[in-house]
Each structure stands twice: as C-alpha cells, then as structure tokens.
C-alpha cells in the first residue's frame, strides 16, 4: 500500500469508528428509553422512590438555583439600564428583565446548573453501582434496575426541574426589579406596565415546555452513561464528566431547537 493510501485510510478509519460508536450509543440509548417506558407499568416500585429522589434533588438544588437566578436578574437589570438609559422609555426595562428571565435565563441557567448538580450525581451514583456490581445484584434478585433506579431519577427530574425553573423566573424578576429600582429609579408601576405590555401567556408555557425538554436531557443522558459505566473508578470519573458535558451540550442544542419551533409558532 502506498503512503498516500495509508494516510487516507487513517482518517477514514477514525470516521468509521466514530460513526459506529455513535450508532451504538444511539441504539442503546433508544433501548433504554423503551425499557423505561415499559417499566412505567411497575408504578408500585418507582412511585415511592421517585418521591425520595424528588425531595433530595429538588430541596438540595433550590438554594443554588435561586442564588444564580437572583444574580442573573440583577445583572440583566444593570445591563438594561446601561444600554437603554436616555434612549428608550424606562418601562422597557420591566419588559426586558421579565421576558429575558422567563424566555431564556430562567430555564437555561437552571438546566445548566442542574446538569452539573443532578447530572453528575446520577452518573456517579449509577456508575458506582455498576462497577461495584450492585446493579447486577439487583438483576440477579429478579428485580428490574430500570424500575428501581432509572425511572425514579428521571421522573423526579421531570417533576422538579420545571418547578425549580418557575422559582428561578420569579426570583430573577423580583431581584431584577429591586436592582432597577435602586440603580435606575424605576417605579413598580413602570416595571409592571412594561412587564405586562410585552407578556403573553404562551411565554410561561414556553418556559415550562423548554425546561421540561431540558429536564429530559439532564436526567436521561447521565442515567444512560452511569448505567453503562465500565472499568472501575476511572470509568465512573469518565462517565460523570461525559454526562455533565453531554447534558450541557444537549441543553444548548435543545434551547435553539425549542426557540425555533415554539417561538416561530408564536
């Protein structure tokens, strides 16, 4: 074989290997989702565990979500003041702060924080259970790991993340208003007028739907990666990092997709 042919085969082989690996992940991920949908019938098993997970994940994440959304609201308010003062009526600030929080910052920031917090937790927990044979033990006892471990985590995330997003929206708007009041002298009347003027009920639905999509990514991807962990402690570490990165990328892609689909419909 000539040198040129060998050099061409290298990248080709890499592309082929990457394609095969991607197809393998897509296939196994799809089977896992089908397994989870099938496992929903075993509600006696997953409902009590879902409540435990939801409490742990929701309550534990509330502080950091509120903190980040408060800062996001304050910064949005300050930047709005910096850009709009003297050029647009002040009530526009109310619209910018509330719409920014509801449409983008609330859902996206909450999801990104939870990708790190919940995603890493799920991947590490399940990965450790896999490498210490706890998942095999569950299977060997004739019990479904999907109903015992995966469904409770995914359903808890699907319930908790949209709820946390709504708390984040509210916190960001309130802190944004208070910051605008302090820095721009914006009155409550002006803020409310601006916020109401541009608000549509669809905006809240959009925020909820978007956070629901993000919740699916934040829960299913880490669960899949943790569940399929291999090679001991190193594998758990790799699964955890990959889970956070993959969930974050998925959030950004879903952000673009939902904006295109839902706001164009609007």
């Amino acid at each position: 074989m000539s040198n040129g042919a060998a050099l061409t085969l290298g990248p080709l082989r890499l592309v082929a290997r990457w394609s095969l690996r991607t197809a393998d992940h897509v296939g196994r991920f799809s089977f896992l989702i089908v397994d989870m949908l099938r496992g929903l019938a075993e509600w006696r098993i997953w409902v009590p565990r879902t409540l435990d997970q939801a409490t742990a994940v929701g309550y534990g994440s509330l502080f950091i979500v509120l903190l980040v959304s408060a800062f996001a609201g304050a910064v949005t308010s300050l930047q709005t003041g910096y850009q709009f003062t003297g050029t647009l009526p002040l009530y526009y600030a109310g619209a910018v702060i509330s719409e920014s929080m509801i449409l983008e910052l609330g859902p996206v920031l909450t999801a990104l924080i939870l990708a790190g917090r919940i995603g890493a937790r799920y991947a590490a927990e399940l990965g450790t259970m896999r490498v210490t044979e706890q998942i095999d033990a569950l299977e060997s006892l004739g019990r479904s790991p999907v109903s015992h471990l995966l469904i409770p985590r995914v359903v808890a995330g699907l319930l908790v993340i949209p709820a946390l997003t709504m708390f984040a929206n509210a916190t960001g708007i309130v802190v944004g208003y208070l910051t605008a009041k302090g820095s721009l002298g914006l009155t409550y009347g002006d803020f409310e007028y601006g916020a109401r003027y541009f608000f549509r009920p669809l905006d809240l639905w959009y925020s909820a739907i978007k956070s629901g999509c993000f919740a699916a990514a934040v829960t299913t991807i880490p669960c899949y990666l943790g569940f399929n962990t291999q090679q001991g402690a190193e594998g758990v570490g790799r699964a955890t990092t990959t889970a956070v990165v993959a969930a974050s990328v998925a959030i950004l892609m879903l952000d673009a997709l939902t904006t295109k689909l839902l706001l164009v419909a609007k």
Binding site: M129, T132, E133, Q134, D136, A137, L138, S140
Partner: peptide, 8 residues
C-alpha cells in the same frame, strides 16, 4: 457476589 455488592 465477590465483594458482597450490598446496596450501600
């Protein structure tokens, strides 16, 4: 199981 595989 070899190492017990107890649910910790």
């Amino acid at each position: 199981f070899q190492y017990g595989a107890l649910f910790d």
